[in-house]
Structures are given as structure tokens and as C-alpha cells.
Measured scan of single mutants.
Amino acid sequence: MKTQEELTEIVRDHFSDMGEAATLYVQVYESSLESLVGGVIFEDGRHYTFVYENEDLVYE
């Protein structure tokens, strides 16, 4: 099982292909040891929320 830090790095790496991230945040109260819930805000103003669970990243 991966730590939240490892899950955060996986998510950060995925979003790095989409541009320069200004902020990546984790909603600790919705996350667990198995999943990471949060969002990313890019330098150009785009904002996505995400759920990373079971090696699957879903974002909108």
C-alpha cells in the first residue's frame, strides 16, 4: 500500500503533462489510505478536481 505522499506524487506526475501546476491540494477529510481526493490549479487558471483510487485517476 502506498503512502499519501506517494499517491500525491503519482497524481502530480500525471498532471505535469497538462502544464505548470500552481497548486495541488488534497482534501484530507475525504481521502484515505486507499484513495486521494483533491484538486489541481494550473498557472493558466484551469482547475480540476480528482479522485485517485486503485491506480485509477478520475478528474473533471
Rank of each mutant, 00 (worst) to 15 (best):
M1K: 13
M1E: 06
M1I: 10
M1P: 12
M1L: 11
M1C: 15
M1T: 10
M1H: 11
M1W: 11
K2D: 03
K2R: 11
K2Y: 06
T3Q: 03
T3M: 05
T3V: 05
T3S: 09
T3P: 03
Q4L: 15
Q4T: 05
Q4C: 15
Q4G: 04
Q4N: 05
Q4M: 13
Q4V: 12
Q4E: 07
Q4Y: 12
Q4W: 12
E5S: 07
E5W: 10
E5Q: 10
E5K: 09
E5P: 05
E5R: 09
E5G: 06
E6P: 03
E6W: 10
E6Q: 10
E6G: 04
E6N: 05
E6I: 08
E6V: 06
E6A: 07
E6T: 06
L7N: 03
L7Q: 02
L7Y: 04
L7D: 02
L7R: 03
L7T: 04
L7P: 02
L7H: 02
T8D: 04
T8I: 15
T8Y: 11
T8M: 15
T8K: 08
T8F: 11
E9Y: 06
E9Q: 14
E9D: 08
E9N: 11
E9R: 14
E9P: 02
E9W: 09
I10E: 04
I10D: 02
I10G: 02
I10P: 02
I10Y: 06
I10M: 08
I10C: 12
I10H: 04
I10N: 03
I10L: 09
I10F: 07
V11N: 02
V11M: 05
V11K: 01
V11E: 02
V11R: 03
V11W: 06
V11F: 06
V11L: 07
V11G: 02
R12Q: 05
R12G: 03
R12E: 03
R12N: 04
R12K: 08
R12A: 06
R12H: 04
R12M: 11
D13Y: 12
D13P: 03
H14L: 15
H14Y: 14
H14I: 14
F15R: 02
F15Q: 02
F15K: 01
F15W: 05
F15V: 02
S16E: 05
S16K: 14
S16Q: 09
S16Y: 08
S16T: 08
S16N: 09
S16V: 07
S16R: 14
S16A: 12
D17G: 14
D17L: 14
D17N: 14
D17I: 14
D17S: 15
D17W: 14
M18A: 05
M18R: 06
M18S: 04
M18Q: 05
M18E: 04
G19F: 10
G19L: 06
G19C: 13
G19N: 05
G19W: 09
E20F: 14
E20Y: 13
E20K: 13
E20T: 13
A21V: 15
A21Q: 10
A21M: 15
A21R: 10
A21K: 10
A21S: 09
A21N: 12
A21F: 14
A22K: 13
A22W: 14
A22V: 14
A22N: 07
A22C: 15
A22Y: 15
T23H: 12
T23E: 09
T23A: 07
T23N: 07
T23Q: 09
T23L: 13
T23F: 14
T23D: 06
L24I: 14
L24T: 01
L24K: 01
Y25Q: 03
Y25A: 03
Y25K: 03
Y25D: 02
Y25T: 05
Y25V: 06
Y25E: 03
Y25L: 05
Y25S: 03
Y25R: 04
Y25M: 04
V26D: 01
V26S: 00
V26C: 11
V26M: 03
Q27E: 12
Q27Y: 15
Q27P: 01
Q27A: 10
Q27N: 12
Q27K: 11
Q27I: 15
Q27G: 05
Q27S: 13
Q27V: 15
Q27M: 14
V28S: 12
V28M: 10
V28W: 14
V28C: 15
V28P: 01
V28T: 08
V28F: 13
V28G: 07
V28H: 12
Y29C: 12
Y29D: 03
Y29P: 02
Y29W: 10
Y29F: 10
Y29S: 04
E30Y: 13
E30R: 07
E30A: 09
E30Q: 09
S31P: 13
S31L: 10
S31H: 07
S31R: 08
S31K: 08
S31A: 13
S32K: 09
S32L: 09
S32D: 08
S32R: 07
S32T: 09
S32A: 11
S32N: 08
L33Y: 09
L33K: 13
L33I: 10
E34A: 12
E34D: 07
E34K: 08
E34T: 09
S35W: 11
S35E: 03
S35D: 02
S35V: 14
S35R: 15
L36I: 11
L36V: 06
L36D: 00
L36H: 01
L36Y: 06
V37R: 13
V37W: 10
V37Q: 07
V37E: 03
V37C: 11
V37Y: 07
V37F: 07
G38E: 02
G38F: 12
G38L: 12
G38A: 07
G38Q: 03
G38H: 03
G38C: 13
G38D: 01
G38R: 02
G39E: 13
G39Q: 10
G39N: 05
G39P: 00
G39D: 07
G39C: 15
V40W: 06
V40H: 00
V40M: 03
V40T: 01
V40S: 00
V40K: 01
V40A: 03
V40C: 08
I41P: 00
I41N: 01
I41M: 06
I41D: 00
I41F: 09
I41S: 02
F42I: 01
F42P: 00
F42D: 01
F42S: 01
F42Q: 00
F42T: 02
E43Y: 09
E43P: 12
E43K: 13
E43R: 12
E43T: 13
D44F: 13
D44K: 02
D44N: 05
D44C: 11
D44A: 07
D44Q: 03
D44V: 08
G45R: 01
G45M: 03
G45E: 01
G45N: 01
G45Q: 01
G45D: 01
G45V: 06
R46W: 07
R46P: 01
R46G: 02
R46I: 04
R46H: 03
R46Y: 02
H47K: 05
H47F: 08
H47D: 00
H47L: 07
H47A: 05
Y48G: 00
Y48T: 00
Y48P: 00
Y48E: 00
Y48S: 00
T49L: 11
T49D: 00
T49S: 06
T49A: 05
T49P: 00
T49W: 11
F50C: 05
F50S: 00
F50T: 00
F50W: 06
F50K: 00
F50L: 02
F50P: 00
V51A: 05
V51K: 10
V51Q: 03
V51I: 11
V51F: 07
V51H: 08
Y52E: 00
Y52K: 00
Y52C: 13
E53Y: 11
E53A: 13
E53Q: 13
E53C: 13
E53W: 12
N54D: 05
N54H: 08
N54G: 07
N54F: 10
N54P: 03
E55F: 11
E55G: 15
E55M: 10
E55I: 07
E55H: 12
E55R: 10
E55Q: 11
E55L: 09
D56N: 15
D56K: 15
D56E: 14
D56T: 15
D56L: 15
L57A: 03
L57I: 09
L57F: 07
V58Y: 11
V58N: 06
V58F: 10
V58S: 10
V58G: 04
V58L: 09
V58E: 05
V58W: 12
V58H: 10
Y59R: 02
Y59K: 01
Y59Q: 02
Y59W: 13
Y59H: 05
Y59S: 03
Y59I: 13
E60L: 11
E60Q: 12
E60F: 13
E60R: 09
E60G: 06
E60K: 11
E60P: 04
